[in-house]
Computed example of a mutant assay.
Amino acid sequence: MIEVLTPQWSVSTKVHALVTTRVGGLSAAPFQSLNLGAHVNDLPAAVQENRRLLQQQFKLPQPPRWLNQVHGQQIVQFSALEHSDIPEADGSYTKHPGVVLAVLTADCLPLFLTNAEGTEISIVHCGWRSIAQGIIEQALQNFDSAADTLQAWLGPAIGPRAFEVGDDVLLAMRALNKSHEAAFTPQPSRWLLNIYALVSAELKRHGVTHITGGEHCTFNQANSFFSYRRDGVTGRMASLIWIEE
């Protein structure tokens, strides 16, 4: 049985959202067991079966719209029309029921966005490079709804006591907004970055105030989550959001 996390937010019941854990699939070590990433050198048959199990257990209305994630700022808008192309982007948006948006993560933060009425949704792969390039603002610009009416949920990411970064990351976030340096804690030669605080601050800077989530650490909770920082060769969790047909 696939184990998942679901957002705690006040939105329409038409909106369905989840993040998979690493529990419930067929992949062998070091991808055990629910690896959903097709790009990490896991056996293709295992990934395909894991994806089939995911679609079956949660009765997904369509196969997820996977992305070729490149740590950029591109947000793709998906129509109701299914297609086989996998666009190069780090986030997606739709207002069409039945379209399942998806990102893959293994330390980066999956950001879920929706309006309260459940007529617009977005999912964003928030690594530090994408954040520095303004991907959160890009995602919000797709919404017709005002930012202060949106709901955001921060899925599992590397926690504030595990995410060591260098001066380059601090400088990139200062360039985005000087106040973002508050998310950094100095270490003897490095910094600890609280990516939950950083994403929350960036959301608030653009008018989003209804923010939940941010309780997990992919690095330290090895039984539940894949972590690239911890393991190097590892699987990927999937974050999915869709509007009920």
Rank of each mutant, 00 (worst) to 15 (best):
V100N: 11
Q133H: 12
Q133C: 07
P63L: 07
E117N: 09
H125V: 01
S92Q: 12
D107S: 11
H83Y: 14
S92E: 07
P63G: 05
P61V: 04
V103Q: 02
V124R: 00
P87R: 01
Q57F: 06
P63C: 04
E88M: 12
V103H: 02
S84N: 14
S84K: 15
A102C: 15
S92C: 14
C126Y: 00
G72L: 08
I75K: 00
T114M: 02
N68E: 08
S79R: 02
A102S: 13
I121V: 15
D85A: 14
T119E: 14
L67R: 01
H96N: 15
A89P: 07
L54S: 10
E88C: 11
E117D: 14
V76I: 14
H71V: 04
T105R: 01
Q57A: 11
A102D: 13
A102T: 06
V99R: 00
S122L: 07
G134V: 05
G134R: 05
Q69W: 06
W66D: 11
R129W: 09
S84L: 13
A89E: 05
L109M: 12
L113F: 00
V70N: 08
Q73R: 13
P64F: 01
P64Y: 00
Q56W: 09
G91S: 12
C108W: 06
P63R: 08
H125A: 10
V103P: 06
H83W: 12
H71W: 09
F58Q: 10
F58K: 09
G72S: 07
Q69R: 05
L60D: 06
V124H: 02
G127R: 06
S130A: 15
H125I: 00
T94I: 06
E120A: 13
P87N: 03
V70S: 06
Q62K: 09
L81D: 11
S130H: 02
P64H: 02
A106C: 10
D90P: 08
V103T: 14
H71C: 10
T114Q: 03
S79A: 15
F112R: 00
E82T: 10
A132I: 02
W66S: 08
F78E: 11
F112A: 08
W128P: 07
A106W: 11
L111T: 05
P61T: 06
D85L: 14
S122N: 02
I121S: 05
L81N: 11
H96I: 10
P63V: 05
Q133P: 01
S122R: 00
C126E: 04
F78I: 06
K95F: 09
S130T: 03
A106Q: 09
V76K: 04
S130Q: 08
N115Q: 04
L54G: 09
G72D: 03
N68M: 06
W128E: 08
V124K: 01
L104S: 07
I86K: 15
A89W: 05
P63A: 12
A80E: 13
S92A: 15
Q74G: 04
A80H: 11
P110F: 00
V99E: 13
L113T: 04
I75G: 03
Q55F: 00
G72P: 06
I131E: 13
A106P: 03
G127M: 07
G98M: 03
P64K: 02
L104N: 05
Q133K: 15
V76L: 11
H96Y: 09
R129L: 12
K59N: 14
T94W: 03
L54M: 10
A102V: 03
D107A: 06
L54W: 02
Q133D: 08
A102M: 13
K95Q: 15
E82K: 10
P87L: 02
P64R: 00
Q55D: 07
